[in-house]
Simulated scan of single mutants.
Amino acid sequence: MLLSAREIRELADGAGLSPSKQRGQNFVVDPNTVRAIVERAGVEDGQVVLEVGPGLGSLTLGLLEAGADVVAIELDRGLAGLLPRTLASRGVGEDRLHLVHADALTVTELPQIPRARRAAADAPSADREREGRPTALVANLPYNVATPILLTMLERFASIERCLVMVQSEVVDRLIAQPGSRTYGAPSAKAAWYGDREWAGKISRRVFWPVPNVDSALVLLTRRQTPLGTETERRETFRVIDAAFAQRRKMLRAALAGWAGSSQRASGIIAAAGIDPTRRGETLTVHEFLAIARAVERGTDPETEPATDLEIDRGPGREAL
């Protein structure tokens, strides 16, 4: 059922398509690698899986072979038009796939898979709330936007419990980094908001077409059963994270001055959160960033002004991923 390297090239040639460097397209052309990824992701029969950037369909076919229903988001018009025909030629029914032709960063709603809705008709009420919706993200993410896509999917689609994505090895290092390490940064802290992350395997360059000039690896993220905080708290925490790492070598009281309105106010908020204002952002856990965000909500203000009157600078890019 899976595509061989020769078949992938023939499909692309027949459709007049070639991988786009601008969009970070590197297609997996080794069936054994595809099956290994699907197995590592723990895909189950009847599960709904979200795939971003299905490309020519190598991983899509692997997910379908494992019995999953797939919601696939594809930006490239040519690839989006070719994928259904490729799956049909492999005998895959159209009820197993729902293709969304869009930029993944702009998608705010995902379709329900009809087959999964029928299968879940007799499921417990808690499961029926998620019927037909993706519970896993499994994807070979475009290299140039991998981290924003991962964090955006986790933010917008609460039904996703588990992510296994292929990205550049250095991106995996950043996503799984712990406070105090050289690679710890805003992506590390933001990913930690959602759950546990772990390195899940190295991918050989030779299984891609075209062969990339960087190493690739898998990162596994398992979502927390209970969120760290509310959506409002998440947004404020991410603003604190962005501000702290925008000037990562500065002490928190200086790095957060713009976010809080002044260095003095930042010091008061940080201290109220039980954190030393002379620490640097690269040493804080996501729980400590959350504590700072909550200190603002509690109305902490060293200048005795009501917290609701604070003019907090949320200038351009403060919530950039």
Rank of each mutant, 00 (worst) to 15 (best):
V92P: 00
K250S: 08
T285N: 05
I292S: 02
R156M: 04
G195M: 14
R117D: 04
P148A: 12
T304A: 11
P31C: 13
G46Y: 06
E94G: 01
A217R: 05
I176F: 06
I73A: 05
N213T: 15
L154R: 09
L221A: 08
T300S: 08
G315P: 05
Q225M: 10
D276Y: 06
A189G: 12
F289D: 03
V48Q: 08
K250P: 04
L164G: 03
D276E: 12
E288F: 03
L61Y: 07
L79E: 09
Q25C: 11
S267N: 00
P316F: 09
D301A: 07
E282P: 04
F289I: 05
S20F: 05
V219H: 01
A271F: 01
N26K: 07
P187F: 13
A146C: 06
D276K: 03
R206N: 12
C163K: 06
M1C: 03
S181C: 13
P179T: 12
Q112R: 15
F238P: 04
L99H: 02
D173C: 03
A102H: 10
D30E: 15
L310W: 08
P31M: 13
R182E: 15
S58M: 11
M251H: 03
A41E: 00
Q264G: 07
A121H: 03
E305D: 06
L97R: 01
E161P: 00
S125G: 00
I176C: 02
L97H: 01
N32T: 14
V92T: 05
L50K: 05
V100A: 02
G42I: 02
A104S: 06
Q112D: 07
K190T: 15
H98P: 00
W209L: 14
L290T: 08
V219A: 02
A139K: 06
K202D: 14
V28F: 05
N26E: 10
V43A: 00
T60F: 04
E231F: 10
V211K: 10
R249L: 07
S20D: 12
G132H: 13
E155L: 15
D13T: 14
L79N: 07
A291T: 10
R314G: 13
S188K: 11
S216W: 01
E303M: 03
V219I: 01
A139I: 04
D173T: 11
G78A: 13
D301F: 00
Q225N: 14
E231G: 07
S18N: 09
E155T: 11
N26L: 08
P142L: 14
V138C: 09
T106Q: 12
E305G: 05
S58N: 01
A293T: 10
A246T: 12
V48C: 02
L59R: 07
W209R: 14
L154P: 00
V214E: 10
L63H: 14
A136G: 06
L64N: 06
V43H: 00
D76E: 11
G299F: 05
R182Q: 15
L310N: 09
A189F: 13
S181F: 13
D313C: 12
P179S: 12
T222F: 04
V207I: 06
A88Y: 01
D196G: 08
I269T: 06
R133E: 09
V34M: 11
R130Y: 10
A243G: 07
E236A: 14
I203E: 12
R223H: 05
P179L: 12
L79D: 11
A66L: 11
T300I: 07
G261L: 04
L175S: 03
R77M: 04
F208P: 01
D103F: 02
P124R: 05
